[in-house]
């Protein structure tokens, strides 16, 4: 028995080494682009220009960050995007909690029809132009509200929360509260929500990351520079000096390399908030996604 165990573990060990190596390799591929850009963002212009920086920064300095932070329009955009993200997340959580709770109660008359109306929205959209026309009609074009109102209700998030409320909160608990004379508002705030903390944290993360990262709606609906979220700013910056400009310029060996460092710093600047918050909420969102996956 013992010898058999040892023999098997030799074969297993080889497989183990291969699997660990493969996973490690994939993880390295996932993280290397950041380290590269992070290293460039804190290196000297000349080193970046000479392509001497891969993963280890050279001539360490924070000049690029000073440039980014010293750019008033960038700072304005950062503050605006933070406020936007916070407001969006709070309002999004409110409509998600309200709709999910109401639709999770079996006693609600018309529950099936209402659920269908909400869920239908996952499978169709009128399209870019009808959306644009609507925002125009509602006078929402080029306002901060257009970056909040259309997207705060997410049927997907609502399903996750509703499924959680239906499956993980015992009916008997709610019935007991009802017998004690609690109305629905109190049941929601004093019974259901305190028991839903982990899934609420997940959904808040989804809302916040979603708002922080998206720029399509801003591209469609926003003209004013002051209302442009960070990602759109970043796109304009990276694209202007990046893909389009630089690629054409690189053929002629242009002198726009000095901007590389600032570009790297800007990319890091827009990424850092997520990278910093992310590990702390990771343990929550796995649960959340699994709940969502039950229904799809």
């Amino acid at each position: 028995m013992a010898s058999k165990k040892i023999r098997r573990s030799i074969g297993d060990n080889i497989a183990d080494v291969l699997i660990y190596a493969f996973i490690a390799l994939v993880a390295i591929v996932c993280i290397i682009p950041f380290i590269h850009v992070a290293a460039m963002s804190i290196s000297g212009d000349a080193d970046v220009y000479a392509n001497n920086v891969f993963l280890i920064p050279k001539h360490l300095n924070l000049n690029a960050y000073r440039t980014v932070l010293g750019d008033p329009s960038m700072m304005h955009s950062l503050v605006f995007t933070v406020i936007l993200t916070v407001v969006f997340t709070i309002l999004g959580m409110m409509v998600t909690i309200f709709s999910a709770y109401a639709l999770s109660r079996p006693k609600l008359k018309g529950r099936h029809v209402l659920s269908t109306i909400f869920l239908m929205t996952m499978y169709f959209s009128a399209g870019t132009i009808p959306d644009y026309m609507l925002m125009d009609t509602l006078n929402l074009l080029d306002t901060a509200a257009v970056l909040v109102l259309p997207l705060i209700f997410s049927a997907y998030n609502m399903i996750i929360l509703r499924t959680f409320m239906q499956n993980s909160i015992p009916d008997s608990l709610i019935e007991a509260a009802e017998l004690d004379g609690c109305d629905d508002f109190r049941i929601l705030f004093q019974v259901v929500l305190p028991l839903s903390k982990s899934v609420l944290a997940t959904l808040a993360l989804f809302y916040a990351v979603g708002r922080w990262n998206s720029f399509t709606d801003a591209l469609y609906f926003i003209q004013s520079d002051t209302l442009k979220p960070l990602q759109l700013k970043l796109y304009n910056l990276v694209n202007a000096s990046g893909s389009t400009g630089a690629l054409a310029q690189e053929a002629g060996g242009g002198q726009q390399q000095a901007a590389e460092v600032v570009k790297s710093a800007t990319i890091m600047f827009a990424t850092l908030p997520i990278v910093i918050i992310y590990p702390f909420v990771q343990k929550y969102f796995v649960t959340g996604v699994m709940i969502g996956a039950v229904k799809g």
Partner: peptide
Amino acid sequence: TQTILYLPHFLSWVIIAGLAYQLFAPLS
């Protein structure tokens, strides 16, 4: 490794494209 593997999902396409061009641009 899981923490690292999930991370790219949370990045915007602007950032991903920025990273891609920093790594794969024709000369720089």
